Amino acid sequence: MTDAHRRAAVAERAARAGGAVARQAFRGELAVETKADKNDLVTESDRDAQRQVVSTIRGEFPNDAVVGEEDAVPLGTPGEEVEILSEVPTTGDAWVVDPIDGTANFARGHRTWATAVSAVTDGDIVAAATYLPTTEDLYAAGAETGTRNGNALAVSDRGDPETFAAASVGRFERGGGAGLGAIAGATVDLLGDFRRFGSMQSTLAFVAAGELDAAFSTYTPDPWDSLAGIHLVRRAGGTVTDLEGEPWTPEREGIVASNGEAHDAVCEVARAAASR
Score class of each variant (00 low, 15 high):
Ala104Gln: 12
Gly68Lys: 02
Ala186Ile: 02
Glu261Pro: 01
Val207Gln: 08
Ser156Asp: 13
Asn149Thr: 02
Gln201Glu: 14
Ala129Asp: 12
Ala65Glu: 01
Val188Cys: 09
Leu243Cys: 01
Leu191Cys: 01
Pro99His: 09
Ala17Gln: 15
Val233Glu: 12
Val53Asp: 02
Phe206His: 08
Thr163Phe: 14
Met200Trp: 05
Trp248His: 09
Ala114Trp: 05
Ala236Gln: 06
Thr147His: 15
Gly159Val: 02
Asp48Met: 04
Thr218Asp: 02
Ala228Tyr: 01
His231Ala: 08
Arg235Thr: 05
Val32His: 09
Ser156Gln: 12
Ala15Tyr: 03
Ala129Glu: 08
Trp248Lys: 04
Ala119Tyr: 02
Val88Asp: 03
Met200Cys: 06
Gly109Ser: 13
Arg13Thr: 06
Lys35Ile: 08
Ser202Phe: 10
Glu261His: 07
Phe172Val: 13
Gly198Thr: 01
Pro223Thr: 06
Ala4Val: 00
Ala143Glu: 06
Ala107Phe: 00
Val120Tyr: 03
Ala15Arg: 04
Arg235Ser: 02
Arg234Thr: 09
Glu12Trp: 07
Val73Lys: 10
Ala178Arg: 06
Gly254Ile: 01
Val82Trp: 01
Gly210Arg: 06
Ala25Arg: 14
Arg47Gln: 03
Phe206Cys: 09
Phe197Tyr: 13
Ala165Phe: 04
Ala11Phe: 08
Gly170Trp: 00
Gly19Ala: 09
Ala184Asn: 01
Trp248Ser: 04
Asn151Met: 13
